[in-house]
């Protein structure tokens, strides 16, 4: 048994995740030294709350990438789900269960539409999602006139605050809606990919779609599931974003799709399909969050924040590619 453990640790040590983890730990340690604010419970909860939206979307996108597709229409899906759900809640009244049911239903339906275009019309997923991004977003703004919604139902605006506890003198923490949704999304996605038969089928389909088809996998059904899952995640993310922002702004989400793509691919998911882990996505997300948060805490003008984010993305992807290349040439020589 110990040998097995050593071997698996050895494999982990050479993995993409290991390097990412080292970078993050290094960053956290130096930020912790430089600013006492960084390693506090307050900052941790703030980070989790503000990155929940990107995180939930990233988990949906991870599943799509593993399945060998891509979706960039999710910001438009989220905008539609958010606007329709909260307009209905304002007009007819609702509760937590019904708003999430509506948002999930809308997200799932729009996701299924993507899957149908991709599978039944045989159009590559990148083309379909560029098109549906424009269709969903264009129609939403056309019908709503791009008007913001500022008055949300009281219970929705108040949100939830569970497991409240005191830490230190005058600060209390608790699990809010954002953190709860993010944790559930991580749990469900991990279970789906690692503990279900369907999860293994998704990996197999992403690795080789033709082989999966010949093995008798229900490729169309799997695709429907994968794009619906992305849509459902977009629906959930849209509601917690509206709760955090305390308003519905139909024009602010579209344009953020590349932030989500960055988190997922930094986490090691491949655009070729079949590759990617929930842990990797968690690390990719953490890297971006820690970096942006650290820059602010170090007192660097927020105008420079994207510059450093870009620099770190470029360096980390170059270093990963370089080390993989070195390993390939070394193993080729042996």
């Amino acid at each position: 048994m110990p040998e097995v453990r050593v071997a698996s640790f050895d494999r982990f040590r050479r993995s993409h995740e290991f390097w990412l983890l080292m970078v993050i730990l290094g960053l956290c340690a130096s930020l912790g030294f430089a600013n006492a604010q960084f390693l506090t419970m307050q900052n941790l909860f703030d980070l989790l709350t503000s990155y929940a939206f990107v995180g939930i979307l990233a988990l949906g996108l991870l599943v799509v990438l593993i399945a060998g597709g891509i979706d960039i229409s999710f910001t438009a899906t989220a905008s539609v789900a958010q606007y329709v759900t909260l307009s209905l809640a304002n007009a007819y009244g609702a509760n937590w269960i019904s708003v999430f049911a509506i948002a999930i239903g809308i997200g799932g339906a729009l996701g299924a539409l993507n899957a149908i275009f991709i599978q039944k019309l045989r159009i590559p997923s990148i083309i379909v999602s560029v098109a549906t991004l424009n269709i969903f977003y264009g129609l939403l703004i056309f019908f709503t006139g791009g008007k913001y919604i500022y008055s949300l139902p009281d219970w929705f605006a108040t949100g939830i605050f569970w497991f409240e506890f005191e830490w230190g003198k005058d600060s209390s923490y608790g699990v809010n809606l954002q953190i709860l949704a993010l944790a559930l999304a991580f749990l469900v996605t991990w279970l789906l990919l690692n503990r279900t038969n369907i999860g293994r089928q998704i990996y197999a389909m992403g690795g080789n779609a033709d082989a999966a088809q010949r093995l008798g996998f229900h490729v169309f059904g799997l695709n429907i599931l994968v794009y619906c899952y992305m849509g459902v995640m977009a629906g959930i993310a849209s509601l917690i974003q509206a709760q955090l922002a305390q308003s519905v702004a139909p024009t602010v989400l579209v344009g953020k799709e590349l932030d989500v793509v960055a988190a997922v691919v930094l986490g090691g998911a491949s655009l070729m399909g079949g590759v990617g882990t929930v842990f990797g996505t968690f690390l990719g997300l953490t890297l971006l969050a820690v970096l942006q948060n650290g820059i602010v805490l170090l007192g660097v003008s927020s105008y420079w924040s994207p510059f450093f984010v870009g620099l770190v993305i470029l360096i980390s992807v170059s270093a990963t590619a370089w080390s993989q290349r070195e390993r390939r040439t070394r193993s080729a020589r042996q």
Partner: peptide, 15 residues
């Protein structure tokens, strides 16, 4: 370096 174009240009875009 063999970085995938989407990642590399996402980096330079942000930079």
């Amino acid at each position: 370096l063999g970085v995938s174009p989407i990642l590399a240009t996402l980096g330079t875009m942000t930079l």
